[in-house]
Nucleic acid binder design. Structure first.
Length: 468
DNA sequence: GCATGATCATGC
DNA sequence: GCATGATCATGC
């Protein structure tokens, strides 16, 4: 077949690819061929390879354009209300071969061999359209900047280490910063052998985290940078990790009160303001208050501030976004909202009350261990079952003012030591519809609830737990 | 003093 | 108006 590009030439391939910008697949592919060969099957990437670049989709270890050293990746965008584009999801790369990765170095790894240079095609995903109609927005090549590559190497080694330790089945996306190990295959199926343990492990692929893909998009679409860098440049031969840099900046202020920290920056901030702790974190890290912390955004790190009482118990439990009753009954655990949420990497900032003052005690990068994730699964499962059966309300009591209080069957702190379900709403009338009417109250809607991390769990498993 | 239900406050 | 982080209130 005659190709319209020179497969030995990077610039020729890129030039041909650039013609996609502003177009949809049905506009750029040969209509006759599409009509006869495209049966509505295959995803965007497969159609792009087959009907535009005219080669058969493969799962080779080699890059798609082997001779030019380019790997083609397409990925969906979503449009925000302010018309900016963001990644709709993470960018999935090749499958992790547990048996082989333990014999590789980063430089000889299957990941690096295939994905060192990417040819990226970003298209706007719109619900009502099919894949032939999606509008292609950005096309460009991508090579990893040296600073990012350093973090990605460390991530790759983190993943390899876990497999070397016989813990492939305990891999989680929260283990790493930019390069994740995402489950691949429906319902986390297709379990695979690992070399150093008998437990089967879910099939996983390397992926670039959604935040990292956002950074790529901002970079190739020439958006003004919203980011401030934590690690501005590589220091000679020093291999700096995000963790080490952040810990060194914070530890300088350990045992200092919030007032003392603010004084040292000559900063006046409203402590009641919603973003006070976010701003304090930026100040300590040396990031301008109007910028986002680049490394945190790229790694999808969630910052949580916790205030401890004298006995180290957090004053409050930690909440997550509310869930929809209608959505949770249809979820599989593997693609549930709460699993996605708790598998992220967190950055905890711990303060402790000393009288009226809050003292900075320590900070910690953390992601939930495998066994605890399984505990959250129990809470999720119980919740799903209660909603499915219309079994939410246990009883209704009147308090001294004669006001009704409803007690639910939702999993409480006693049910599970990791997480529980509690209301999270404007007030009791702030509700979501129920897929099944409640048996006791006949209600068709119920106060919004969410998952909470037990404060006792935060004390024992995050604050007091020694870092490994 | 804790567990659980309920609500507030801020920022977009 | 809503999402999110934070906090209050009641009863045991």
């Amino acid at each position: 077949m005659n190709l319209k590009y020179d497969k030995f030439s990077k610039s020729s391939i890129l030039g041909f690819a650039k013609k996609l910008e502003g177009k949809s697949l049905e506009e750029v592919c040969d209509k006759e061929v599409l009509v006869h060969n495209y049966a509505g099957k295959g995803n965007f990437g497969q159609v792009l390879e087959k009907f535009y670049f005219l080669y058969e989709p493969n799962s080779d270890a080699k890059a798609d354009f082997e001779e030019a050293g380019l790997e083609l990746k397409s990925s969906p965008l979503k449009r925000l209300k302010n018309n900016h584009y963001r990644a709709k999801e993470r960018l999935v790369l090749n499958i992790i071969n547990y048996e082989e990765v333990v014999h590789q170095t980063f430089e000889t790894s299957a990941l690096w061999k295939k994905n060192a240079h990417l040819l990226l095609v970003f298209y706007l995903h719109e619900k009502e359209k099919n894949i032939l109609e999606y509008r292609i927005k950005f096309v460009d090549e991508w090579s990893f900047p040296a600073l990012d590559l350093e973090i990605i190497k460390q991530d790759w080694q983190t993943i390899q280490n876990k497999i070397l330790q016989g813990k492939a089945h305990e891999l989680s996306e929260g283990d790493t910063f930019y390069l994740g190990a995402v489950t691949k295959g429906s319902k986390g199926g297709n379990p695979r052998r690992q070399p150093y343990a008998k437990e089967l492990a879910k099939q996983r692929a390397y992926s670039l985290k959604q935040g990292y893909v956002n950074h790529i998009i901002a970079s190739i679409s020439n958006e003004p940078s919203l980011y401030g860098k934590l690690i501005p440049r590589l220091e000679h031969e020093q291999k700096l990790s995000i963790e080490a840099v952040v810990l060194s900046k914070f530890s300088y202020f350990y045992e200092k009160s919030i007032e003392e920290i603010l004084e040292s920056f000559s900063l006046q901030m409203n402590q009641k303001s919603k973003n006070f702790y976010a701003n304090l974190t930026k100040a300590i890290l040396g990031i301008a208050l109007n910028k986002e912390i680049e490394e945190f955004e790229k790694a999808n790190i969630v910052v949580k501030t916790v205030r401890l009482k004298a006995n180290n118990l957090p004053k409050e439990d930690i909440s997550f976004p509310v869930f929809s009753y209608e959505a949770i009954v249809d979820e599989n655990w593997e693609d549930s909202q709460i699993k996605e949420t708790i598998e992220q990497k967190f950055f905890f900032v711990f303060f402790q009350f000393e009288g009226q003052q809050l003292i900075l005690k320590k900070v910690k990068f953390w992601n939930m261990p495998y066994l605890d994730i399984q505990e959250v699964q129990k809470v999720w499962k119980q919740t799903q079952s209660l909603v499915k059966n219309g079994n939410i309300v246990k009883l209704i009591k009147k308090d001294r003012q004669g006001k009704e209080r409803r007690y639910t069957n939702f999993p409480s702190k006693k049910f599970n030591h990791v997480a529980h379900i509690r209301p999270h709403a404007r007030n009791a009338k702030d509700t979501f519809p129920l897929p099944v009417q409640d048996k006791v109250t006949q209600a068709k809607e119920y106060t919004k609830h969410c998952f909470w991390l037990n404060n006792s769990y935060v004390r024992e498993s995050i604050y007091e737990e020694k870092s490994v």
